[in-house]
């Protein structure tokens, strides 16, 4: 799943809106809890597990999940739960980096092209078309292969492949807002373009873009996990979620090595998607 489809999904929902005062549905509460746990895992991994993610106990190789080892142990006797918890920081931070790149670069392009129009819009529009023309995941693969196989490069690649989606949404929103009466009124009051942009256009255009950013956060986790799965991230002994699944799949007799990190990925992305859906359309 790459960035490209998120745009179509947002558009199909109609205008996005954020309602501030509404009861939080139980599923959203659960999703927020999951995200909180993931954030805590990445900030304070040692609080959540006493095991080392690097050094294993050679006496207990490929143990199935138990009270001592919640997610079992791998071929070196390392606790899989500890590997997942310590891998969280890199998996989550890289997704944040990816979203930040897409959000900042994409918004800047969209803002400039929607607000300025004319030749700038035409030029930037072609650039965005070109970024969109290369399938998102392939673009990410090419960029990461060119920058080198590291998780941070995978994050940059994922971010760049999402720029076009942010740019298109921001442009559409800016054009919608730019034509409203209150923006014209600000010109009549003698405001200049920059003032109008900062005080009127941006505050009224950014919300759907932020909702996209939340959705894109989940997508980025998936894309970066896929790149790590292919071996384009940091090599072992680092334990990015995607890498854990990839190294677990060779041990057919120990399926928990695949299922545990896979479940963590699914739970995290599902929660983020639920939150983004709630922000779009509170119910």
């Amino acid at each position: 799943m790459s960035a490209d489809l998120n745009f179509a999904r947002l558009r199909s929902d109609g205008a996005a809106s954020i309602r501030t005062r509404a009861a939080i549905p139980p599923t959203v509460l659960m999703s927020l809890l999951v995200v909180l746990v993931v954030v805590l895992w990445s900030l304070f991994p040692s609080v959540f597990t006493g095991y080392s993610p690097v050094n294993g106990d050679t006496g207990s190789k490929l143990d199935s999940p138990s009270l001592q080892h919640w997610f079992g142990t791998d071929y070196l006797g390392r606790d899989q739960y500890a590997r997942v918890v310590y891998g969280t920081a890199s998996s989550v931070t890289s997704a944040l980096v990816a979203v930040a790149i897409g959000l900042v670069a994409g918004s800047a392009i969209g803002l400039a092209s929607g607000f300025r129009g004319g030749w700038l819009d035409a030029t930037l529009g072609r650039f965005v078309d070109v970024l969109l023309a290369i399938p998102g995941f392939l673009l990410a693969v090419v960029i990461v292969s060119s920058l080198g196989f590291q998780t941070i490069n995978a994050a940059i690649a994922t971010g760049v492949s999402a720029v076009a989606v942010f740019a298109r949404l921001m442009r559409a929103e800016v054009i919608r807002v730019r034509r409203s009466t209150f923006v014209e009124a600000s010109y009549l009051e003698g405001g200049n373009r920059l003032q109008a942009l900062l005080t009127h256009v941006l505050p009224n255009a950014y919300r759907p873009v932020l909702v996209l950013a939340v959705l894109q956060f989940g997508t980025s986790i998936l894309v970066i996990a896929s790149l790590a799965f292919l071996g384009y991230g940091d090599p072992p002994p680092s334990s990015d979620w995607g890498l854990l699944v990839a190294s677990g799949k060779t041990y057919v007799t120990a399926p928990w090595l695949v299922y545990a990190p896979a479940l963590v990925i699914v739970a995290t992305v599902l929660s983020i998607n639920r939150i983004s859906r709630w922000l779009r359309n509170p119910s």
């Binding site: 996990a225 896929s226 699944v245 990925i265 998607n273 859906r277």
Partner: peptide, 11 residues
């Protein structure tokens, strides 16, 4: 659909 979009292809 939301569930389908949360599961990585490789999983």
């Amino acid at each position: 659909p939301s569930f389908f979009l949360s599961v990585p292809n490789f999983v």
